[in-house]
Amino acid sequence: MNLKELYQEIILEHGKNPRNLRKTENFNKDAKGNNPLCGDNVHVYLKLNDQRKVEDISFEGSGCAISMASASIMTDLIKGKSDNEAKEIIEDFLGMIKENPELKNNILKEDDKTKLMCLSGVKQYPMRVKCATLSWHTLVSAMENDGKEITTEN
């Protein structure tokens, strides 16, 4: 195990100064997620325009450095993408955290992929995987807009 791999500079920086930590005005999709184990929670807001492009995405909530950084990086990378592209990125990220050594999508630029890969350190910390994935699962729920509250225990 290696703390340096878990707490990389980018993670610490995003954890300290999370991007898009606010509430999107005129959002048209949103969902809440929580981690009952630790009480962490996140609320993701999304504005999809008529061309089904993510015009804005933001989040509110509190959590550990990993979960804040993950939500921060996620919102940064998803903004401006189409909903299909967003779905592909989400699936790719969750697949990488779960088992894949690399990201496979061709949507993100290399340096964005590098940023995302910084979160791969959690793979060595099974109890922390949920911290990294909560906001992503919540985003899925928001996009499907089924209003279902996500909990990491499901």
């Binding site: 878990l6 959590g63 550990c64 450095a65 990993i66």
Partner: peptide, 14 residues
Amino acid sequence: EGVHPHDIATILDE
């Protein structure tokens, strides 16, 4: 101040 309890627990565990 400035460190979430989960991060504290992980770092101590090391």
